[in-house]
Nucleic acid binder design. Structure first.
Length: 463
DNA sequence: GCATGATCATGC
DNA sequence: GCATGATCATGC
């Protein structure tokens, strides 16, 4: 079967919407001449939904060519599993993995001649609800639509691609992390890191094989955009940080334009500037005023911040140059963590995001106020990410054996620990065996944050 | 002094 | 009522 154009393919593919493969086949009279034989035994009961869909519905044998699946019209098929949160909201379950690449080959490409653009410029996305208890042909499919890279966020994606390739050109393929980039990421591929090790062109160190992907947060944004487009045709997404700008510039430059004018101003002064009441008892007052400085409308972050899940964190530096407090993250979902992989966990997704550290320094008077001293853009280096993983794995183990009294402490490995975070000690969360336990979360150690800031300042002491 | 447990204002 | 983004309070 050859497709005439994208529209013809999309029309056929969208018969899957709000349906299942088996229902779509049964209800569709015209299969464009395709015949559907008995289910291949390869897929009996379980297997890869994407391969199954491609073969059964589109009548194509799965292959690993570097050409798009529907080569004649340049469209690549991707299936994306969805999960439903406890509050009923729907999220993509994982990143969208694109083409695998070899370090020695990708450094010979430019963005415009890249395999990425050749293969993944136009994606046919099939979002379906993940449920292992449902056979492939019955899985519930949500929406089906095209996503054209050249029409969305192409500047940032090009910058991401170049960040990845330049890191390989610097001989640092082994230090790549999904956190290096905002939308397009380089994720590890294959269950076993050790078995996928490969050569890189400008270093003798072997590096785990990687594929390009749309990061979890960006995959979620794609889903939201497509969902909202069809539900109301009107754009209700967050505003862009580039709104009103005549040309694109890197995010860091844009943030400088927004916040540099506030450097040196105290909390009280900033609250006055934004016509808000300064309350020294509000523990998150510098976080609130940071959002004002960045220009979030109604406390909602920008499209770019949501699409990359950028973490805005405030850091207070005391008069003596020390950072007193650790940095908290989301509460640990006890029921979920026991069946999660590291690379699909909340903590991994947060740590492979970009961070904006808003720095506040203690004022010289005794006002218990701090003044804004600028920001740093940061993401966690891969070696520290490995340590965070150890903390996460240990925590997962402790939760699974119901030992909530012996969580990793701040001596565990110097990067992160686990500690309470709740309204009070009666604020509990259910575990997978029905117990109630105090709410806790992961924290980055204050000493680790201090080292990070120290390095960001090119080893200039904080004081 | 610092590690750990406890707690809080805010906004939706 | 609860998640968020934090800081405070204690006890060793």
């Amino acid at each position: 079967m050859k497709w005439k154009d994208k529209e013809e393919l999309l029309k056929y593919a969208q018969k899957l919407e709000n349906s299942s493969i088996i229902l779509a086949i049964t209800n569709t009279e015209d299969h464009y001449g395709q015949t559907f034989s008995a289910m291949p035994t390869l897929y009996a009961g379980k297997g890869n939904f994407g391969d199954y869909l491609e073969e059964r519905y589109f009548g194509k044998k799965n292959d690993t060519k570097s050409k798009p699946d529907f080569e004649e019209i340049g469209v690549e098929l991707k299936t994306v599993p969805l999960k439903t949160l406890e509050n009923g909201e729907v999220r993509v379950k994982e990143r969208i993995v694109l083409n695998k690449f070899r370090y020695v080959d990708i450094v010979k490409e430019t963005f415009s001649t890249s395999h990425f653009l050749a293969k993944d410029s136009v994606l046919l996305l099939v979002f379906y609800f993940h449920d292992n208890s449902i056979p492939l042909e019955d899985k519930k499919i949500d929406i089906v639509d095209l996503w054209e890279v050249l029409k969305h966020d192409i500047n940032q994606i090009q910058q991401d691609w170049e960040t990845i390739v330049n890191k390989i050109r610097e001989g640092k393929a082994h230090e790549l992390s999904e956190g290096d980039t905002l939308y397009l990421g380089a994720c590890t591929k294959g269950a076993n890191r050790a078995s996928s090790m490969q050569e890189q062109p400008f270093s003798k160190v072997l590096a785990p094989g990687r594929a390009l992907c749309f990061k979890n947060s960006y995959a979620n944004m794609i889903y939201r955009v497509l969902k909202e487009e069809r539900e109301r045709r009107a754009k209700i997404l967050a505003t862009s940080i580039y709104e009103g700008e005549s040309c694109w510039k890197p995010l860091e430059d844009r943030i400088h334009e927004l916040v540099d004018k506030y450097v040196g101003k105290s909390g009280q002064t900033l609250y006055q500037l934004f016509n808000k009441k300064y309350n020294p008892l509000d523990k998150s007052r510098y976080a609130s005023i940071s959002r004002e400085m960045l220009g979030f409308s109604k406390n909602k972050p920008y499209y770019e911040f949501e699409a990359a899940d950028i973490q805005v964190k405030t850091i207070r530096i005391e008069k003596n140059g020390l950072i007193k407090e650790a940095m908290s993250f989301k509460n640990i979902p006890y029921k979920e963590i026991v069946c999660q992989n590291w690379e699909d966990s909340d903590f991994y997704n947060e740590l492979t995001s970009k961070f904006i550290f808003m720095i506040f320094k203690e004022c010289d008077d005794n006002s218990n106020d701090y003044y804004f001293d600028g920001f740093y853009l940061w993401n966690m280096p891969s070696c520290d990410l490995d340590k965070a993983r150890d903390v996460w794995e240990f925590t997962k183990h402790q939760v699974s054996i119901d030992d909530f009294d012996n969580m990793p402490n701040s001596n565990f490995n110097g990067v992160a620990h686990v500690r309470p975070k709740a309204q009070n000690s009666n604020d509990l969360m259910e575990t997978s065996n029905g117990d109630m336990q105090k709410k806790k979360c992961f924290w980055l150690n204050n000493s680790y944050i201090r080292d990070v800031i120290y390095k960001l300042r090119n080893n200039v002491p904080l004081k």
